[in-house]
Amino acid sequence: MHFVVCIKQVPDSAQIRVHPVTNTIMRQGVPTIINPYDLFSLETALRLRDEMGGEVTVLTMGPPSAEDALRKALTYGADRAVLLTDRFFAGSDTLATSYALAQAIRKIGDAWGAPDIVFAGKQTIDGDTAQVGPGIARRLELNQLTYISRVTKVDAEARTVELERRAEGGTQVLSSSLPCLVTMLEGSAEIRRGSMAGALRAARAEITTWSAADAGITDLLKCGLRGSPTVVKRVFAPAPRAEKAKQIEVKAKSRETADDLIEALFEAKPAMQADLEQLAAGL
């Protein structure tokens, strides 16, 4: 079995700062991590490999420094890492990104065997679009299985797969067939810790680095800004609200403060008392 896992290196969002004048993201000194949602897909792929045998190839598209994310994935136990990096990819939106990744996955298939399952993160924490996984699935004509909470069965002989998918108001129990693209739900697996041996192996491992041409991408009009139908026209900081919050004076007794607050709320929104009474009565 061959599992390909697409990951993305993202800035640790808790530490993002925006330049107050230029409104640009200040990346300097912000640590990068593997997109947290990708880890659930990586973990699921590693477990399937451990149970069934085979290989896990991790793939990322990004600047040369994205190699760090791949080494981290190797530490967890991935067998092989491919970095797709080229200035032609700069400014790619989700459509252009899915094109480049799909081409790279084809190339991976040529080199090391066609993947049985391609995994991607449910979404990233920096873009939050959840579009790249479906985009890859469409371009490679893989069965698209998103928001998966559990892969219950993979039958290599029959080329079938059974899984549970999070849907509105419940869980869909699905059967589908290989090859497919799966995005795993957060919390769907306990992420393993990388071992010391894994870290040593990862440090020495060779990362396969491909340019657009190496990945067999000849149509550069489908890449980067030129291949992106969406155009970011304006980037701006959210406008702060003009008025500040009204402070309710804190009295010695909390209950008095609480009564003052409720009074202020009912004064500000006269309908609120009736609304709350109805709600409290379960009407």
Binding site: I16, I25, D126, D128, V231, V232, K233, F236, P238
Partner: peptide, 16 residues
């Protein structure tokens, strides 16, 4: 919103 809401961006699909 992008980057967890720190910035907003306005996006167009001009030619499609």
């Amino acid at each position: 919103p992008t980057f967890g809401g720190s910035l907003l961006c306005t996006i167009y699909t001009l030619n499609f």
